[in-house]
Structure formats: structure tokens, C-alpha cells
Design a protein around this nucleic acid. Sequence first.
DNA 1: AGCCGACATTAGGGCGGTCTAAATCTCCGG
DNA 2: CCGGAGATTTAGACCGCCCTAATGTCGGCT
Lengths: 240, 240
Amino acid sequence: MGTPSTLRTESSACCRIELTDTVEDYLKAIFAITSLGEPASTSGVAARLSVTPPSVTAMLHRMRDSGLVATTTWGHVLLTEHGAVHARSVVRRHRLLETFLHRVLGVSWDEVHEEAEVLEHHLSTRLENLIDAALGFPDRDPHGDPIPSVRGKHEEHGETPLAQSGPGDIFLVQRVYDTDSIALRHLAELDIRPGVSIEVERRPSDLAPMWVRVGGERCSLSCAVVNLIHGRIESSAAAS
Amino acid sequence: MGTPSTLRTESSACCRIELTDTVEDYLKAIFAITSLGEPASTSGVAARLSVTPPSVTAMLHRMRDSGLVATTTWGHVLLTEHGAVHARSVVRRHRLLETFLHRVLGVSWDEVHEEAEVLEHHLSTRLENLIDAALGFPDRDPHGDPIPSVRGKHEEHGETPLAQSGPGDIFLVQRVYDTDSIALRHLAELDIRPGVSIEVERRPSDLAPMWVRVGGERCSLSCAVVNLIHGRIESSAAAS
DNA sequence: AGCCGACATTAGGGCGGTCTAAATCTCCGG
DNA sequence: CCGGAGATTTAGACCGCCCTAATGTCGGCT
């Protein structure tokens, strides 16, 4: 911490700010929020990082001064290209680590995230590349999240949510958001993970859960869980 | 970093101080210095950590207040049992990581140290155990340094230095201190590593290097390099 | 015995990051 | 058009860790 890891080779040396763990966390948070299109608000970043808004304001100031972030409307920011490059780098390290820990050490699906969360800040470029190669240059992590390539374009959200499918649809799971560890453990027990197909029986409503069939088993999915699941509708039964 | 990694399970909860990365570094430094018998001096710790003596004084104060360290003579400290437990834990994580990175990822001998140096502070107990098991519970790292067990006694220095051997001796290398990355790379090229035997031709003097044979090749070793090599004299030729 | 050099400590300041409390700004609805 | 709710920012403080400069303390040497 104090000393920033000198093992990472940063191409652009033009920034005054240290790329501390904290800055990387802010970068990642803003990346996640803005990847849905909207600029990030102070309070949004604060909530995601569990800090108070004044802390965010102060940090955003420094990040703006060093060109990582640009303010748009009042209290809202977007990543600059420079900031986005670094943000993608953090996300790449995070997802490579998740894949590595899962495949090599057998860390379970729902535990992998919190481990990667702390290691991502301390992975040297050397280890990053070694891990990438050892895994055969994967393009998705265990949750199906796309792993940004070291250089080049990156598409964060391409899948359609499970909630958009209707009864009779065959839905191919491609991605399960790892924001909720408990839900993830639940889904692991149900064998719902990227690559499996599920058959929709009933859409979720405000009152009732969604019902699906997966691997012959019939099960219900709470709304919170359904929203984590994204993928592609393989065959649609609904003609309406 | 700010937030200390909550993933590590600390048995003794009786300490007021946070076990930050920095504290772990101090612990490790004091452990290394005092493992040779002598208490650690302020300036000694300062030199090892590349920090100024006043910083060490301040930190030692806090560490003493939280029972990690006890002051003996003027400006000298020893680890308490409590502190030693934590120190061994850090060393254990460091050496497990070195072994893991070397064996699994193929990180070279001389590079493994600096990688472990930063990761050691962020390895959860869960990953520590997983790595330990994946490696088959090793008891030495790639340099031959003993890996402290999770509980139980630990002997840090048992080997005799190469410098103590005389002409004609067959010396079994058991350990090569990893304090000097350049020397380590040099030794790797010479195929001198734990497990290999070398034959001593001439002792080092103030002026001349040591001469040894290893794998049929005859080579010279500078004094700085010789001091890193420790092991056991297999057969002694010197009757004097 | 006394002095001097080496070492340790105090004093005081800085930076990164966090917080609370108070002030300010924006935007929307009446 | 103005006021109030809600979000943002400023103000001020704290902690961890580092630094430099000045001061204290020890032991050895003359």
C-alpha cells in the first residue's frame, strides 16, 4: 500500500497521481457505473464503494486533476480515455484472477470474487501475462464476464436479461453477475451457470417468483436472483 | 489498502493495532534480524526497510503498545511471542507464494521474491491453505528457505555457510538467500541451487574469489555470492 | 574524567484517505 | 417565480505513515 507496486508497467507516465489501490477502486466503480451509459454521480460512487460523498468529491478532484476523469453535469463524471484504459486494466486483472483461482486452485464460484477484489491491485504485469497464458488466454471469467484484452476494444454488456424471456423459451445462460455472493452460492447448487440452458415456465411477477426447469429439475428463482442472470434466448415459444 | 484485508482469520483478537501491510513488513524485518540471535536496532530495521530511523521509532512505539514487540536495551527490540506468531505467518505466506509462483506459473528463481513480497500481504487464509495443499505441503521454498508450519516450532537457520568449507570439500547446497536478485540470476546460470553438490577448490580471500567445481564446470564465486550460499559439508578433505 | 561520535528520540510537517457537520447548489413542483 | 428537498461541496478533524531538523542518550577513547 504505501509504496505503490512498482512491478506494474504503466505505459502512460503523464499522470501526477499515484495509481494507488484506492484510486483503482474508484476507477473500477466509475467504470462499472458508466458502462451502462449514464455518467456516475458522486453519491452513486460513494454507495458502491461504501464511503461518504465528501470522500468521493475529494478523490474525484484529484482524479480530474490528473486526467483520469472528466466532469460532465453537476456532480457527475465520466472516465477519460486515459482513465478507461486503467479501469479496463483493473477489470482485466480481476477477471483473470477469478478465472485462475477457480480453475487452478478450485476456489468456488461465490468466493472467487472477494479474493480477486484484493489481489487485483497487486498483480504485476509479469504475473498477469503468465496467468493469461497458463489459462490459454480466456475471454470470459467463471461468471461469464468478458475479460478485457490487453489492448483493443471491449464490450461490457451484450447479453439480454433472463427476465425478458417468456414461458416456453429456452434460455442459454451466458453470464451471472457476481454482485451477490449468497445468490451465487444458491445458483451453484441449482447448477445454473454460464453455458447451461434453462427452460422458462413462468415469468416473474411482483408477487410470485420465476419458475424454470434446469437439468430436469423444476425450481423457482427470486426476482433478485433472476436479475443477475443474462444470456441469449435460444428458441422462443412466445409468438405474441 | 486503507481497509485491512478482512479475509485473513486472526486467532488472537487482543491487539489494538491494525495489521497493515506496513506493520507486517516491520514484523518480517524484525523477525529476520532477530533470527540471528541479536535484538534488532532501530537503524537496522530502518536500513532493511529503506525508511528513516524516526519512522521506525514511531512504528516501534505503536507495535510495543499493542504487544507485538518488546524493548530490551536502548533502542533495541525483540518480538514478543504474539509478534513472532504473526511474523512467522507473513514469512509462511511469502515462502508458500514463492514456491507456488515458481512451480505453477514458472516464475524464475530470481523474480519470485519481489512478486511474493507484495502478494504476501494480501493472501487470505483460504488461499494460503489451498496453495499449501496444491503444492503437497512443502517445507522449503525454491531458495531452500524453510516454510514455517501453520502451528508449531520453526527453525530458521540450521545450515552452515559455504565460506566455512575448505579445498577438497564436497558441499551440498541447501539454501541460497534471496536478498540479491542479480546474484541469484548469476547462480541460476551456474546451476547452483538447493540440492546440488559443489566441490571446493580454493577458499575465498580478501583479494581473490572462491573457486569451485559444479557439474564438471569450474567457476569463480565472488565473496558477495558465496555468503548467500548455505548447506552442509558432505565430505571434508581438510584434516588440518 | 570528560568529550565526542554514533545512535535514538522528539518536534513538526506533509500526503493520502477517511469521517462528520455545516454550507451551498440544482432542480422541480407548486 | 420562489421555496424546499435532495444532492454536492466545503470546512475541519483524525489516522497511518513518511520525511527533515533538532535534541537526547549512550559508550568508547584520550
